[in-house]
Design a protein around this nucleic acid. Structure first.
Lengths: 164, 164
DNA sequence: TCTTGTCACTATGTTTATCATAGCTACAAT
DNA sequence: ATTGTAGCTATGATAAACATAGTGACAAGA
């Protein structure tokens, strides 16, 4: 990040969130972590970000208590990154971003009729569309309640990123 | 923004949102617009951002259809900035950011017991806390449904920014 | 008329972050 | 001994952010 005024001590809650979330790389890394990607190389490949940026942002997120670094094997020593409870609670933000984009960011027919990413409420099986409350059973939707299903174009894109 | 890979054509909805929202200045400007600040100088003063940054980001937001530039007087010609329908629909994202910060970003007692920014559901008068659904009447909360009341420390901070 | 003030910006130069590319370290497998 | 994998770090060019200053159009008061 460039030199900038520090707003981490503002009393505005949006300002405090913006200190962490107001960064493209952070948002893309969080998206991948929510998607289940935990390994450094997988995140770097899928986001298209350079390794120094991924490294710097993961360090920042660990420092902020949003992510934790965890050794998943000893020889050779390898680490993966996991969302903490504080990190998992960011789901609502990413989900709101997804909802907005599904409504506004695609040309007609670009995603072949349906959403780019479909979400199903695990508890009742309903397609939640782009709402914060399940249209089937009325429950508020949070981390863990939903099962995501990428559309065909999105699946193809992700496959191309990890393969090439 | 620095030189970066273009992700505006990704199929991932979070990626598309991140192209616009993954920027500290954009988030702060949107916050001020939601707060009712529509004039250039008011936004620049309250966010603490330099005028070129504010100018560049407002141009971007107008280009993206999130904000519209509107002349509010002729002599001298003066413009203000307003959220479009597409912009107002970003409320859910900013509200989710606020909710997260209220839960995780303050030291105990820092905001004197209550939230930094209290929200009241206009329809039923209930304090919504940090939920996406009104705890009083069960309705989903969106733009226009809520009345914000800044806490004393937040009010003092905003007064200092506009005054000094 | 001359000065002061307001609003919405634009211009300039320094500092700092990002990107692309390459390389490194530790180990496993062949 | 070579190749491969994972998780990074180093380097140099480019581009964006910051602080500071200045501009243009007008209004209001001395």
């Amino acid at each position: 990040m460039p030199k900038r005024a520090d707003l981490s001590d503002t009393f505005c809650p949006v300002g405090r969130s913006a200190e962490i979330l107001g960064d493209r790389a952070v948002l893309l890394i969080l998206r991948d972590l929510f998607f289940g990607r935990r390994r450094f190389e997988a995140i770097a490949a899928n986001t298209g970000l350079g390794p120094q940026l991924v490294s710097a942002r993961l360090k920042l997120l660990v420092h902020e208590g949003v992510v934790e670094r965890h050794a998943y094997q000893d020889r050779p020593l390898r680490h993966e990154y996991r969302l903490t409870a504080k990190g998992k609670d960011l789901f609502d933000v990413l989900y709101a971003m997804r909802n907005w984009a599904e409504r506004w960011a695609y040309a007609p027919g670009e995603t072949e009729g349906g959403p780019a990413m479909r979400y199903i409420h695990r508890a009742c099986g309903a397609d939640v569309g782009t709402s914060v409350v399940c249209p089937g059973c009325g429950e508020a939707l949070h981390y863990g309640d939903l099962k995501g299903e990428p559309s065909a174009p999105l699946q193809a894109e992700q496959a191309a990123r990890s393969g090439g």
